[in-house]
Design a protein around this nucleic acid. Structure first.
Lengths: 109, 109
DNA sequence: CGCACTACTCCGCATTGCGTGGTAGTGTCT
DNA sequence: AGACACTACCACGCAATGCGGAGTAGTGCG
């Protein structure tokens, strides 16, 4: 089993969740996600997600020159981003509940 | 937010989980999944999943004539199907843990 | 100069759920 | 009979999205 398909539809949420702790740039986000357990995330997926979210108006973006390489593009949550995070967190929890009920039997409220 | 993308990669597992309680046919499976919380699943998705799983050798299949309509194609888990279910259940749990840690903070082991 | 590391981007592919529409069997109502 | 509704399944094309590979740059090391 591959996480690949599981990641679909969740990467957005995961990215927003990381960003909630403060702004970062893509490269670092990839690292954080991998350390958090999404070991397989491709960098292109994360960058793509960031562009999508930014394009959707959920993120702020700012280019900051770095002393250790190319300039970094810092992303941060704006109001819409926080709302989105809250919303998709709820959706996720409902979904996860449904799954866990299905997987372990029928009890639970 | 749409469950659509969340379903990707999980429908297989959900179908296997339902089938664990005994064999059924597609039409009924769709009903069960919808009642379980996946209200939006399309029947074509479920049938497609069943065909995929059957093609992969995880399901048994048997056509049974019905008195109330067209013949039903009953599907059931075989050994490989049970293994698959067990495996993907583990993957799911790991994944869900990672997500919940990301979403609620950093505590938890 | 070549290599490694950082940082970001583009392109094409594969997977997979969905919507639409189609086939087919049975029963009901007019 | 004809029109519908319900059951049951399937085919086709679309859309979303993660991934792999390749490319562009900047900095620093041997």
């Amino acid at each position: 089993m591959d996480q690949t398909q599981l990641l679909k539809g969740v990467l957005d949420t995961a990215v927003l969740a990381v960003l909630r702790h403060g702004r970062t740039y893509g490269y670092d986000l990839v690292r954080q996600l991998r350390e958090s357990g999404f070991e397989g995330v491709g960098d292109a997926s994360v960058y793509g997600t960031l562009r999508r979210l930014f394009g959707g108006g959920y993120l702020t973006s700012e280019i900051v020159p770095s002393e250790e390489g190319p300039a970094r593009k810092y992303y941060g949550l704006n109001g819409a981003g926080f709302d989105m995070l809250e919303q998709s967190t709820k959706t996720w929890i409902g979904f996860a509940d449904t799954m866990s009920i299905l997987l372990q039997g029928e009890e639970e409220e």
